[in-house]
Amino acid sequence: MKKMWKGNHAIAEAAMRAGCKFYAGYPITPQTEIPEYLSARMPELGRTCIQAENEMSAVYMILGAYSCGMRCMTSSSGPGISLKQEGLSYICAYYLPAVIVNVQRWGPGLGTLDSAQTDYLRDTRGGGNGDYRVIVLAPNSIQESIDLMYESFDIAEKYRNPVEIMSEAALGQMMEAVEFPEFKDREGELDWTYDGTNRPHGKLPDSEKSAAALAKYTKIAEEFQRWESYRTEDAEYVFVAFGLPSRTSRNAVDQLRANGEKVGLIRPITLWPFPIKAFEELGPQVKGLISVESTDTGQLIEDVALAAKKCKIDVPVYGLFSGLSISKTKAISEFYREVKSGQRKEVY
């Protein structure tokens, strides 16, 4: 039978089921329930959970453990993930996998404890120095948090690239009824890890790294886009939203449809690579795209506009930015009506 689980606890348990053997992290609200849970759970399973002396130290422990092939992860909130960027950049430089969870809170600096999506641009663009990307997965329910976490080590190892689960404060704190998959371990062996022999570790000379990066990220972008399209077949206006705002947007679609409005929703599940293919499926009847996001100035909307350009959808792109809250269903419906009646100006 399904049981009520808090988002953060559920992600932590899912990581265990996925074969995570080592966790290093540092406390920060609203993600502290992850290390809190693991500090009790991992010793039970004979695994290792370390509260590092700081965030940087934690990310370098992950770099070290994964270079030897150990499934491992770290987690934090926005400010802590900023501190981890140097380590993430190195993980990418060495072509190593890693799994990171970012339970976002609002704002620059220390920000607040409110739920938000204000780390979108940093996390989808790499975040540290150099030209790399992190694969970013955005669940919108606790079950999906579990399912994506369960897959994340396989994905990270397949592409030898970090995978981030991008959660939100409210998604980490709320509870829903969920089910867990069985415990698993890696299938097969990684052939590049440091194992005490002199086998090749897949290291590249700098002269080859540029082309290799382009090849790797082009491949991921091509084959790893995920999304959910909802009632878009004949939609004239399409909302684009991920995470919790995608849930209120979906409600708004249902309410507006009940009143005869032709609206739909694209919900990106991979934020990088951005699901451009979802936009290729839109028909010529589309009159506008509306990005619904918990940001202050608009971040997701940049990818929406780029996706529209790539797919030659020449329509205005509007943005509903709710800052440190989640847009309510009513607010989304009202915004749509204002867009439709020409009272709102497009951003792109």
Partner: peptide
């Protein structure tokens, strides 16, 4: 909230609880 959420779950509903 948690207690009432459990009651709804018992009746087979979809449930969310947010603090």
């Amino acid at each position: 909230g948690l207690i009432v959420a459990e009651m709804a779950l018992e009746e087979g509903k979809n449930v969310t609880w947010m603090p």
